[in-house]
Design a protein around this nucleic acid. Structure first.
Lengths: 194, 194
DNA sequence: CGGTCTCTTGACGGAGTTCAAAGCTAGTGG
DNA sequence: CCACTAGCTTTGAACTCCGTCAAGAGACCG
């Protein structure tokens, strides 16, 4: 039942079969329907979610009602509102399922005990968070210093799977531009290639 | 000699006097002159730096020779090129002293041993990195969804001390705009207030 | 004082937005 | 299996935000 997550963890740290079995006792499987919310302000994000199947979106809903997509998560990725999860404060971001699918849920209140029982997981999660810092840093640099064309090209290169999986208006939202302009960017790039 | 850093750590975790004394053995003081580089590509960032006095800047130098400022650090803050520090890979970012000052240096190769001897520091650094994730996430949202006026106002509100401490063209670079445009933003905002 | 470095101001151009309308696609019910 | 609808994408015109370039005004060292 938890093969996928254990396999994924073993890409980063060594985990004995006993540890793997013990880990399973801290996890829950959860089916998702399309558009289901896993985190919804202002309720605190009390769990982290590992995507087994499907696709999640992390977004901020501003005062004017506009959604700003800050991240996507596909199979093998973790996601939650980390700000809320770390601090216990009310969540400010939504986490939503874009497709029907399945996630593995790790509850906040179990995590410390789990870390004590399975120390290797400290390393695993530390690596995850380190990678988050690195990739967020790149994203800041891109957002502040490159044009929409460039950001779109890098997005397609980095996440080719997402390109045809999520609607264009969400990709536009992730890139910080309007859907209309993304459409123009795409036609411009297509014209250049020929 | 290390009072400032120990005081700062004790804001987040409890640290016995013995631990504090032991910690000191892992640290080094380093004087900085203005414009001195602490991290310089492609040399790996082999230490983290705690600012005792002065101000640091984290920036990326692109292919066209333009510098993009990604972060500042003042007294009580840590800084390095985390991407390089975590992975050991060549650094891509510069870390530079903006003023003469003093930092405390923590070497990469000592960190694991230090964590073993003083477990409380695991928690401290975990909190630091969690905060980094949270604040970077906010910065991404701002960069992608707000105008330059708004970004400048938030910057001044969040870091009032920096406003009159670092040159405007570096703040512009941090906000992702040109110095010329920042100048116009400022006069526009000043006009509105009156 | 002189020279360099920073900040300001203005004219112009390009990147991205807004609004509106039309075309396309996929799901849904008959 | 078709027809309809609702939502997504494209296209275009006018507008705003921001960059580029160039020139001038301060400010800070020597």
């Amino acid at each position: 039942m938890f093969e996928t997550i254990i396999e994924k963890i073993r890409e980063h740290v060594t985990l004995s079969d006993d540890d793997a079995a013990l880990l399973s006792t801290y996890l829950e499987v959860r089916k998702l329907r399309k558009n289901q919310l896993l985190v919804e302000p202002p309720y605190p994000a009390n769990a982290e979610y590992f995507v087994v199947k499907g696709c999640l979106r992390h977004y901020f809903l501003d005062e004017t009602g506009v959604e700003h997509t800050t991240a996507f998560a596909m199979e093998g990725w973790w996601m939650t509102d980390l700000q809320s999860f770390f601090t216990g404060a009310p969540s400010k971001y939504h986490v939503e399922a874009l497709e029907e699918g399945e996630v593995i849920k790790l509850r906040r209140e179990l995590k410390d005990e789990m870390f004590n029982k399975i120390p290797a997981l400290n390393i695993y999660f530390r690596i995850l968070y380190q990678n988050a810092i690195i990739s967020q840093n790149e994203r800041i640099l891109n957002a502040l210093s490159t044009t929409a064309d460039e950001r779109y090209l890098r997005f397609v290169k980095k996440y080719p799977a997402l390109e045809n999986r999520v609607p264009q208006y969400l990709i536009a939202s992730y890139l910080g531009i309007t859907p209309e302009f993304l459409s123009k960017v795409k036609t411009r790039i297509a014209a250049k290639k020929s």
